[in-house]
């Protein structure tokens, strides 16, 4: 017999943990107190962390750090400086940002920024390097075209 969503186990627990995750997604740049999130979710801190980790594979704190690093990547790609990105995503010190970034991404924020800038120049100069040939061909995009749509 089919079971639908209405019957899935402990629906209210899921809703609270999901709300906590979404809270982190939108307030990552602020000084988030994870105890407060557990309180808002009406859980004991221990219970909350365990449920969160079961669902997302990371503790709330690990998840918050991952979101901050991901947002920093986006800001660096958009051309912000390392310190701008660091403070904009909620880190309080450049050194902890630098070491967490390197642990996650594999390179320092400044090396990442440099790579991105080089890539941007390459994209500007040779955009077709970044598009599979089949699509470029079907669209009539050639090395010398200006990418206008040709009916």
């Amino acid at each position: 017999m089919k079971r639908t969503i209405e019957q899935y186990p402990k629906v209210y627990l899921y809703k609270r943990v999901v709300q906590a995750k979404l809270f982190i997604d939108s307030h990552y740049a602020e000084n988030i107190e994870l105890n407060n999130i557990a309180d808002e979710a009406y859980f004991s801190k221990f219970h909350f962390i365990r449920l969160f980790k079961n669902i997302y594979g990371k503790t709330p704190h690990q998840y918050l750090t991952a979101v901050r690093i991901e947002k920093a990547i986006q800001l660096l790609r958009a051309g912000q400086t390392v310190s701008e990105a660091c403070y904009a995503v909620g880190f309080e010190s450049l050194s902890s940002f630098g070491s967490l970034f390197k642990r996650t991404v594999g390179v320092t924020p400044s090396a990442f920024l440099e790579e991105q800038q080089k890539m941007k120049v390459q994209i500007m100069n040779t955009p077709l390097m970044f598009v599979p040939g089949c699509f470029a061909y079907q669209h009539g995009w050639s090395e010398n075209s200006n990418f206008e749509i040709v009916p």
Binding site: R3, T4, I5, Y14, L22
Partner: peptide
């Protein structure tokens, strides 16, 4: 996904339209 109920709740709260809710098949 690793947890379909959590993913469903999240996407639904972001306004994603579901044609079928999580159903055990």
């Amino acid at each position: 996904c690793t947890d379909i109920y959590a993913t469903y709740e999240e996407l639904k709260s972001k306004g994603v339209e579901f044609v079928k809710p999580p159903t055990k098949e």
